[in-house]
Structures are given as C-alpha cells and as structure tokens.
C-alpha cells in the first residue's frame, strides 16, 4: 500500500472517521420527517400511527400561511437587492488586484463576521432612527445585507473562471463593452449569479435573529412562527412545516449543484486545449 503524505493517519481510519462524521451531520435533520406523519399530537417516539393530518393543519392555518407569505416577500425583495448590488460589486472587485482586492473582498464579508445579534441590535437602532421600526421593509434591507456576501463571493468565483481573452475577442469582433457584457460575459457568469441569489434567498428564509429584533409581533416570518411553535410546543405541525422546508432546501441544493456544473462546463470549455 502506498503511503499518503497528506494524511496524518492511515487512509482507512480517516475514511471511516469521515463517513461517521458525515452521517452524524446529515441524519439528525431527518428525524423530523417521521414525526411529521404522526397521527398523535405530541412530538415524541414511538409514533402512534401514520397520517397526513399535520400537513393539512399547516395548510389550513392562517398564521402559518401569513408567515410563509411574509417570508417569501422578504426573501424575494432582499434577494433582488443583494443580487444587483453584489453582482456590480463583484464586477468591480474583478478589476482590482493585490492588496486592494483582498481588502475589498474582506469588506464584503463583514455582514457574515459580525456576530448576528450585534448586527440585529444595530439594525433595531438604525431602523428606529429612520422610522422603519416594526416593518418588513427594514427586514428586507438587513436580509439583503446578509445575502450580499453570498452573491458577491459566488459571482467573484465565476468571474475568476471567466477567460479574459473572451472579452478581448468580443471587442475585436466589434462588440462594444456593453454588448460584450450582455452577450458574452453575463451568459457565462449567470450560473454564478443565480447560485448566489439562491443562497441569499435560502438565508433570508431561515433567519430568526434580525427578524425577531426588527419586525412587529403581528408580522411573523416563517422562522419566527416556527421558533414560537417550537418554544410553545404546539405539536407536530412544526415538524410538517420543517419537512416541507427540508424538501425546499433539497431542491435549492440540487439547483445550485446543477448551476455549478454548468458554470464549470462553460469555464473548462473556454480554456485553451
């Protein structure tokens, strides 16, 4: 057997440990799925029987429906803002080099590396100052801030795969900078933009802390509704919603993976030989 100088321990041990770790990482989230089909009204094992009951409850409940609508609205609006600002910023960062580039890239990460509760408190003060307290508009602005790093990083990464000579080729064939951007660069980086946007949307759909600081109790978003559902132990209806969210996440994950493959195919296809 060959020696692996990149591994501190024999390969088989590392492999076994890694498999164990990933299983522990993935399985727990799936626990909610069986409970959501429980015919009983408490969240516990063993399950008394199978039923779709809680899905019906969730669909029929105005509180859950309103929460879902609020979340979708906030998510869509904040994603749009984050995508426009983040894509522009990524195009700017792509023109920078060396130290300036590193500093600007780090600055785009700021919303991710400030502890979220501190950002949420600052948001509370800032929105109170401009009279946007207790509004979904305020939440949109700060969710856009949290989504911004995902979009920027994703687009910067896809721009790195963009072969600069394509830009020159387009110009030599008669394309103005705007035409070259629209017809050559944008189609090639589009998967990166879309992946970043999906990340930003998923983030908004799962965000509790800022939401609990800046929204009014009457405008619960989906995570807030779930949070109170879990705290107040309102039964398996929460697990039904959780299962639906899980399904949504899987869809997101698959779409992003498809986009990533497409983006890589475009990148490798444009490389020399």
């Amino acid at each position: 057997m060959s020696t692996d100088y990149g591994l501190p321990l024999p390969r088989w041990w590392m492999r076994l440990g890694s498999i164990l770790l990933v299983v522990i990482l993935v399985l727990p989230a799936l626990v909610v799925v069986p409970i959501s089909f429980s015919s009983g009204s408490i969240i516990a094992f063993p399950l008394p029987g199978f039923s779709w009951h809680w899905y019906g409850e969730a669909a029929a409940s105005p509180a859950w429906r309103d929460a879902l609508l609020s979340s979708l609205r906030v998510g869509a609006a904040s994603t749009l803002i984050a995508t426009v600002i983040g894509t522009a910023a990524a195009l700017g960062i792509d023109r920078l080099q060396g130290r300036t580039r590193a500093i600007v890239l780090l600055a785009t990460l700021l919303p991710l590396v400030i502890p979220i509760v501190i950002l949420a408190l600052g948001a509370y003060f800032a929105l109170a100052t401009v009279g946007l307290s207790n509004s979904l508009t305020g939440l949109v602005i700060f969710h856009a801030a949290l989504g911004l790093p995902f979009v920027t990083l994703s687009v910067v990464a896809s721009l790195q795969g963009f072969d600069r000579t394509l830009w020159r080729a387009a110009a030599s064939l008669g394309a103005s900078p705007i035409t070259a951007f629209r017809r050559v660069m944008l189609p090639i980086i589009a998967p990166g933009v879309a992946a970043g946007a999906i990340f930003a949307f998923a983030m908004s759909l799962d965000e509790v802390v800022v939401a609990s600081f800046v929204t009014a109790p009457s405008q619960r978003t989906l995570p807030l509704q779930m949070f109170s559902g879990i705290k107040e132990n309102t039964g398996p209806i929460v697990t039904a919603v959780a299962t639906l969210l899980l399904l949504l996440s899987m869809t997101f994950l698959l779409v992003v993976e498809m986009l990533r493959r497409r983006s890589r195919r475009l990148a490798t296809a444009s490389e020399a030989t």
Partner: peptide, 16 residues
C-alpha cells in the same frame, strides 16, 4: 471594437 481588425488568440477565445 471600432477598429475592424480581426484577432486570433492563442487560447482560441471561442464563446463557450
């Protein structure tokens, strides 16, 4: 883009 010179690049630079 206004020079009307055709350019052929070593990396081909075909739009993927």
């Amino acid at each position: 883009h206004k020079r009307d010179f055709g350019v052929v690049f070593q990396s081909y630079a075909l739009f993927p």
